[in-house]
């Protein structure tokens, strides 16, 4: 399969998990990566800046209608839902979903619709159920899903909720996820 986009959802414990993934992805990783990390409303730019310190890839918080380009990591801005259209981002301030804005479900659903089988979804550590519905939609639209092995997750609720709802493609310890992504993307 010729994958075109990676979407990642993380909540409690996500900062360390995301950092681990991004510092182990090669600098020539060619797919755009879109991340929803649950966060407080006014964390400003610190989350992005702190992850950037350890990532080979450029991290940006997209504005509305920002074009999706390969080789970048897009971090959902605080207090907005981040949605994917064909080729660019859209934002919304619709009410929180599963108490979350940005919501993983909202991102995954829009990406599943826009990218279908060309999408890879990744669910990481978290202490709520956001992302479970999103994963089931990525599968419904023919995409590929990796869930962090709950045993290796700082908080296992979110990966477990995703696994309870869907048959996914891979369940991997955190450290193995970057390699799997590199392989799927054809970077290796």
């Amino acid at each position: 399969m010729d994958y075109k986009l990676v979407v990642v959802g993380a909540s409690l414990g996500g900062f360390d998990a995301l950092t681990t993934i991004l510092e182990n992805l090669p600098g020539n990783f060619k797919l755009p990566i879109v991340v929803v990390q649950h966060r407080t409303r006014d964390t400003g730019d610190t989350l992005r800046a702190n992850i950037q310190l350890r990532s080979h890839l450029l991290l940006v918080e997209p504005d509305d209608k920002t074009e999706i380009t390969p080789g970048k990591v897009y971090l959902a801005p605080p207090n907005y839902h981040l949605l994917v259209e064909k080729g660019y981002f859209a934002l919304s301030i619709d009410p929180p979903v599963e108490y979350s804005r940005p919501s993983i479900d909202v991102l995954f659903e829009s990406a599943a619709i826009a990218f279908g089988p060309a999408l890879i979804g990744v669910v990481l550590t978290g202490s709520n159920r956001d992302g479970a519905k999103g994963v089931s939609l990525v599968k419904e639209y023919g995409g590929y899903v990796i869930v962090q092995d709950p045993l290796t997750a700082e908080s296992k609720t979110m990966p477990e909720a995703a696994l309870a709802l869907s048959q996914v493609d891979r369940v991997l310890p955190l450290e193995e996820i970057p390699l799997a992504l590199a392989e799927l993307s054809g970077t290796l």
Binding site: H81, E85, S92, D94, I113
Partner: peptide, 9 residues
């Protein structure tokens, strides 16, 4: 309207 959020609504 923007398709993704409109569809959700």
């Amino acid at each position: 309207y923007a398709p993704a959020s409109l569809r959700r609504r």
